[in-house]
């Protein structure tokens, strides 16, 4: 095991951080969060010389790459005698980028933070690394299946609540992560538990933690998220035992306990015997289903009816609970 790649997705929504800084009894504000985060990142790059790091910031309405160890900056910060140059470089670049982005941002400040967008960028980044990694091996020349990066992972540090509209992108990211063999770790720093991050961590074999002691963030970061997946085979890391598997319904984007899948009737004779159902992936909540089932669908009519979720394809969602409409 030579190296371990870590992409960190940091939720930097000012509104939620503001609320977090007012949340008593234990206050966690952005500056103190960033100093603990930087300590954690320094720990990661110090753990092994070959370790790589990328940091993505999720600002309201847009996501930015804050730091990437594979693209060294043009201007090195002036080194001083008392600091370890690699740490200094990481810390100062991240701070500088956050600041410049906060100052110059023109996006709508009210918009929810682009956590999913940052997550997808992180996945793309890892994909790029995978391609570069494969270019140097003989695999690419022989046209073989690309090798997966050793031990890539993504850590999501979120302060925002779930956005139900982003359920499908999150699920798609989870599938991509599974394909790239990326482990997704997640830590919810503030607010309610998030269903989607729990699922993301669970489905990719990562660890999800809700920050209970908000005054001990660094402890959580080092203990749960510093060991790379390879190390976790030896060292158990804490995670949440209970996972909320609910999904968001397609129609109202509410998180529902019980949803209904559409059913296409293949053959009237077979449908009577209750055997030849094929369920699609759209999940509707109770309010809509009676209406849908009252419309008598023609043979395979749903497919042409124009509300297929693009990108969802025919994948079975592990999180979906499907029920048949009769």
């Amino acid at each position: 095991m030579n190296s371990s790649h870590l992409s960190v997705v940091v939720d930097l929504a000012p509104a939620h951080w503001h609320r977090s800084s007012l949340h008593t009894p234990s206050i966690l504000d952005l500056p103190s969060f960033i100093s603990q985060l930087l300590a954690f990142l320094n720990a990661h790059i110090a753990a092994r010389h070959e370790n790589t790091l990328a940091v993505f910031g999720a600002f309201p309405g847009e996501s930015v790459l804050l730091y990437s160890s594979s693209d060294p900056p043009a201007d090195y910060p002036p080194s001083d005698a008392n600091s370890f140059p690699p740490f200094k470089m990481v810390n100062s670049i991240i701070i500088r980028n956050i600041l410049s982005h906060l100052e110059s941002s023109t996006a709508d400040e009210q918009a929810p933070s682009a956590l999913v967008s940052a997550l997808i960028k992180a996945l793309c980044y890892i994909n790029r690394l995978t391609i570069e990694f494969n270019a140097s091996t003989s695999n690419a020349a022989e046209g073989l299946e690309p090798l997966a990066l050793p031990d890539p992972r993504i850590l999501i540090l979120s302060v925002s609540p779930d956005q139900t509209a982003s359920y499908i992108p999150v699920m798609n990211s989870i599938f991509s992560a599974q394909k790239l063999k990326v482990t997704i770790d997640a830590c919810q720093l503030f607010g309610p538990e998030t269903v989607f991050l729990q699922q993301a961590a669970h489905l990719t074999g990562g660890s999800y933690i809700y920050l209970e002691r908000r005054d001990a963030l660094l402890q959580y970061l080092t203990m749960a998220f510093l060991p790379s997946p390879a190390v976790r085979e030896t060292i158990s890391v804490p995670t949440q035992d209970k996972i909320d598997f609910r999904a968001a319904c397609f129609c109202h984007k509410n998180i529902v306990d019980v949803g209904f899948n559409q059913v296409s009737y293949q053959d009237p004779a077979a449908s009577q015997s209750g055997q030849a159902f094929t369920a699609t992936d759209r999940l509707f909540c109770v309010e809509v289903t009676p209406l849908i089932s009252s419309v008598n669908p023609p043979k395979n009519g749903w497919r042409s009816s124009g509300y297929t979720i693009a990108g969802l394809g025919s994948r079975r969602l592990a999180a979906f609970r499907s029920y048949r409409i009769h």
Binding site: C251, H252, V288, P297, G301, S304, S305, G306
Partner: peptide, 11 residues
């Protein structure tokens, strides 16, 4: 052009 089936959603 398929007319599709109108999804009459409550609310």
């Amino acid at each position: 052009p398929s007319a599709g089936i109108a999804l009459e959603m409550q609310d």
